[in-house]
Computed example of a mutant assay.
Amino acid sequence: MTENNTNDNNEAGGPAPERVVGTPKAGERVVSEAGTSAAPESGHEGPYKASETHGRPEETQRRGEKLASLWFVLAFLGGIGFLASYFVFGPEAIAEPQIAQYSNMLLGGTLTLSLFGIGAGMTVWARQVMPHYEVASPYDELPSSEQEKGSFGAFFMRGADESGFTKRPLMRRTLILAMLPLGLAPIVLLRDTGPLPGNKLKNTVWEPGLRMYVEGTHRAVRAEDFENDPNAMISALPAIDDEHHPHGISLDEMAKSVILLIKIPEGDWEERMKEEVEGTDGVTRLNWTHNGIIAYSKICTHVGCPAALYESTTHRILCPCHQSTFDAANAAEVVFGPAHRPLPQLPISVDDEGYLIATGDFTAPPGPTFWDYAKD
């Protein structure tokens, strides 16, 4: 294989070769310790030494170039097919199960073709175009000497020349072409993040005056239910009736709205609960309770498991999934576990008949925020 010495051609006054992406500029020279140009020859002086080179016949290289280019073109077509399939089968179209199946097959098939084409083309390039030899260099302490830098630069130029990247424009250009659709794919897929949720995450079905049912029943909760067992914990849901909500509420809204009702003795409240202070979940006030009864979201702020365990002596609410623990006497602040936000508080009171009612919505979005983001 004949090697091109760019520096020698320039010194002889010959035409400067066209620069290829990934190689030094035509005017740059690799300088050895003696100050002379170091040509990328196999017998140059320096620590970077090559073993015997096993080159490929020119006919084999040309055949490999055409085959690798063909794979790169197929990869390009696969990438274009992936982008086209993504837009043809939009979010509305894939609502039908049969269409969603075809969409998944096309997206997966075209992406597989694109990635496989690039991998196959690179394999053909390495096996049929590039020469085979090993490069060895003794281990030396940094910094490198000028001679070592010149030796590495010479080997870099030699490798660029022998790889066919500079000599085989068809293969080089089809590789770049094949990579373009894959580079655009992540940008296009940002469309799946959906629109911003606005205030959707902050709102549930709780509203002023809405009563609450014991979970699993249609029995409204009264404040006197806690007199017989002051350490009880009641899981409750909004009392949705046909008059105000003729179509009921979805299971998603029901899951977001479930609450824990806990009664805490007057002397057990933390000092911060007795003042109008701003906690990590917004303003939390003791006057949002009634006769020591406080309401928190039952959904753990970690990954959405039900925080269904309560230890009355320490007033700790425990999520059994990952052991996140919240202090019910201190605005449900996190005291242990992976959760980072306290359980949102629901302001409550009683109506004229003694039933517990909500006086507003939660102080913060309940549960993990990815719930609604995932659906959008």
Rank of each mutant, 00 (worst) to 15 (best):
T2L: 08
E3T: 08
N7R: 11
N9A: 09
G13I: 04
A16Q: 10
P17S: 08
E18R: 08
R19I: 11
V21I: 11
T23Q: 04
P24V: 06
E33D: 09
G35S: 15
T36Y: 15
E41R: 11
E41L: 06
S42F: 10
G43C: 09
E45Q: 05
G46P: 01
P47Q: 04
E58Y: 15
E59C: 07
T60N: 14
R63S: 12
E65H: 11
K66C: 06
L70D: 04
F72M: 07
L74K: 10
A75Y: 05
A75V: 02
F76E: 00
G78K: 00
G81I: 08
G81R: 07
L83R: 03
L83W: 01
A84Q: 05
Y86E: 10
F87P: 00
F87V: 09
F89C: 09
G90F: 09
P91A: 14
P91Q: 06
E92Y: 10
A93G: 04
A93V: 11
E96D: 12
P97H: 07
L107A: 04
A120Y: 02
M122E: 03
W125T: 01
R127E: 14
H132M: 11
Y133V: 11
V135S: 08
P138G: 05
P138K: 00
E141M: 15
S144A: 13
S145L: 02
S145D: 06
G150P: 04
F155L: 03
F156M: 13
A160I: 15
P169S: 08
R172M: 13
L175W: 02
M179S: 09
L182R: 07
G183M: 10
A185G: 00
I187Q: 05
L189W: 06
L189Q: 04
R191N: 13
D192T: 06
D192I: 03
G194V: 11
P197H: 05
N199I: 15
K200L: 02
K200I: 12
L201H: 01
K202H: 03
N203P: 01
P208L: 10
P208M: 14
M212E: 03
T217D: 13
A220L: 13
E224C: 07
N228S: 14
D229E: 12
S235A: 10
A239K: 00
H244Q: 13
H245E: 07
H247S: 15
L251A: 04
A255G: 02
I264L: 03
E266W: 06
M273P: 01
K274L: 06
N291T: 00
T301S: 00
H302T: 09
P306S: 05
A308S: 08
L309T: 14
T313D: 13
T314Y: 09
R316D: 15
P320Q: 08
C321E: 13
A331F: 02
A332I: 02
E333I: 10
E333C: 02
R341S: 11
P342R: 10
P342C: 05
V350A: 00
D351N: 01
E353L: 10
L356F: 09
I357M: 07
G360Q: 02
F362R: 10
F362P: 05
F362I: 03
P366I: 03
T369Y: 14
T369H: 11
